[in-house]
Nucleic acid binder design. Structure first.
Lengths: 178, 178
DNA sequence: TGTACATCAGTGAACGCGCGTTCACTGATGTAC
DNA sequence: TGTACATCAGTGAACGCGCGTTCACTGATGTAC
């Protein structure tokens, strides 16, 4: 994990390693604040799409786009979440990542549930399943993007996958006619 | 990455760290051989499901189940692939993981393509998109499983997601009647 | 069958290296009178 | 307006630690005669 060493990070912001300790007590605190930042971004995305539209399906669609954009904007984020979070030895941080993950999934599920009640999303599937499948559009393409050094296009996959996904979650018959 | 240190691995197999150097020239070589092992398992899965059934959709279904089982059987595998592969500083290993990933996706896509030609899978979607979406059922649930210390059940998610997925890839109309 | 030797997995002490971190210090900026 | 002092971000040398790795050695096992 040389790329996430204190020395490397310091260099990236034009400082000497020890200077970072004026702002953070330890490397752990630095990584934690990155996680907080990520959580903030995700919460922002949720808030914004809910302000932008009332339609649950459209909310989910925009959330997908924003999530993919977030990953592309800051390539370091998945590195912190996965390399330093999911597979960390530090139980505290893994718990933090778990909470972040669960809360995001929970919010997503709530949106799906609303969509189901409004008859815009099929009701014969659990909201959590649909929510996790949406994450399943983002994650693998983010990894492929990293591995391919940017040659693979997550946004492109997102567009094609959404076409199938939107159709998949659509109810067979409208519950009631508008 | 204490959990993947030479000392930890040696201890796990009841040896002293230096003893491992009788069998591998370096830690890199150890990790590479784990990647080879993973590749072998995935190739085996592909071979086996193709022997078991001729039906492309059923092949994909069984591949999903086997993939989920593989992840559950050996929790260390995702750690090697992701923590030490996708986010590694070592270009050589990232390339190796990329190749592994691409080849598996390629094989999966081929199966999808056959399914499309046989009229069992809708043709208005690229095989690669469908293949990557299938991976999208496995990966996030594997991470959740890790994060939740085994409380979350990937196989359960796999079952529910497959119900939706199978329906999603089904052609709107049969191409021809049998 | 017994003896002499080769092979080789495993040991344990030691190494160099890079990491996260500390600490006395510098020097620019803001504040009080 | 000028002087004296406080504050604090940033510096650079030094540290202890754990990592991957080396190497001379041990001791069990197989082989030749």
């Amino acid at each position: 994990m040389k790329q996430l060493s204190v020395a490397r990070v310091a260099c990236e912001v034009g400082l000497v390693p020890s200077a970072l300790y004026r702002h953070y007590r330890s490397k752990d605190e630095m990584l934690d604040s990155v996680l907080d930042y990520i959580q903030g971004r995700l919460v922002n995305n949720l808030r914004e799409v809910c302000e932008e539209t009332e339609d649950a399906v459209e909310r989910i669609h925009r959330l997908l786009i924003r999530h993919l954009r977030l990953v592309k904007e800051s390539p370091a984020l998945p590195r912190v979440v996965f390399a330093q979070g999911v597979f960390s030895d530090d139980f505290r941080r893994r718990k933090k990542v778990y909470k972040l993950f669960s809360e995001y999934l929970g919010s997503l599920s709530s949106i799906v549930e609303i969509g189901q009640k409004e008859g815009r999303i099929r009701e014969d599937a659990r909201p959590e399943t649909i929510a996790l499948m949406l994450i399943g559009i983002v994650q693998p393409s983010a990894f492929l993007w990293h591995l391919s050094n940017g040659r693979f296009d997550p946004a492109g996959h997102g567009r094609k996958a959404w076409k199938l996904f939107a159709e998949m979650i659509r109810p067979k018959r409208a519950k009631w006619i508008k």
